[in-house]
Write a protein that binds this DNA or RNA. Structure first.
Lengths: 159, 159
DNA sequence: TCCCAAAGGTTGATGCGTCAACCAGACTAC
DNA sequence: GTAGTCTGGTTGACGCATCAACCTTTGGGA
């Protein structure tokens, strides 16, 4: 609760819009560059990066999902699309007949390596370099606080 | 420019992920509540709110686009879907044969009024109440700074 | 006048994300 | 061991967002 009532005041409204705009434009720019540089999307990149760092360069879907904090079906759809393009392969898990393990392919490795440097540079240039150290701290704490609050208030909606 | 090299360090990586997670989960929760309370999505709400506040409760597509900072086709698709559900209507503009004006319907007004209170309360509860005043300031400045930087670096990509 | 570029919008294709429904393998209780 | 449930994963439908291509009207000039 706190706050001063139900409606957002002008200041809050402005912050809220700026937050949205920042996210949308940042996401757009990063996607465009990633697409141009390596022919992959941000979701592709996240999956590939997680797999590339994993031991054996493969993960079970469950682990991948936990790592990325994605929904079940979101990952399933994403992996299907990526498999069609040859970035990953799926095979069965020996220990558990239900499970599937996702492995990065050579093509996937090439893509993610091509993308990594430029992507990181882009994130730094557009995001971190625009922030003062104090703002960075605030961002960190605020992000954590909002996530924590979401976890408390909307527990069903957290994967 | 700032920073310390191309790769993101651990701290930065963590902040970046927290930012993404915060946005995704916030967006998900807000959409779910909006859908449940008023049967509309966040994009629906943004359009309806802009129209409801406009003089004559109608705007030309161009103005709506500028207000929301959306891409041309994004708005066109959105309006088409909303028109099918009876939330808005499109009619021709007398002054300019190319233009279209979008008007909110009674059903649209009802929806947006139903949604407004609960939505604002939700944004306050999940976002603003989680932030200290200092964090709010930082968020505001940081958002503005990132947007400004985007405008400078990627001018072509800004609508 | 005629041509041509720019502006306002629309459309189709494709990828992304959610939801609800479903299926199959694994666990638990009895 | 068999019934019921839980868990891991997939699928189909649908809304959302981007891109590229397109159409029409407008507004200048030559």
């Amino acid at each position: 609760m706190g706050g001063s009532g139900k409606r957002l005041d002008g200041r809050e409204y402005q912050v809220w819009r700026a937050f949205h705009r920042m996210h949308d434009q940042l996401s757009l720019a990063l996607n465009q560059h990633l697409q141009r540089d390596a022919g992959i999307s941000e979701p592709d990149f996240q999956v590939l990066a997680a797999l590339a760092e994993a031991p054996g360069q493969a993960l079970r879907s469950r682990e991948l999902r936990e790592d990325l904090q994605w929904e079940k079906s979101r990952l399933a759809h994403q992996i299907r699309r990526m498999e069609q393009r040859g970035l990953v392969v799926r095979d069965e898990c020996l220990e558990d007949g239900r499970a599937a393990t996702v492995r990065i392919t050579d093509a996937g490795l090439t893509s993610v390596r091509t993308a990594a440097q430029a992507h990181a540079a882009m994130v730094r240039e557009l995001f971190f370099d625009a922030l003062t150290p104090a703002q960075l701290d605030a961002f960190d704490e605020a992000g954590t606080a909002v996530i924590e609050r979401l976890r408390q208030r909307c527990p069903a909606e957290a994967p």
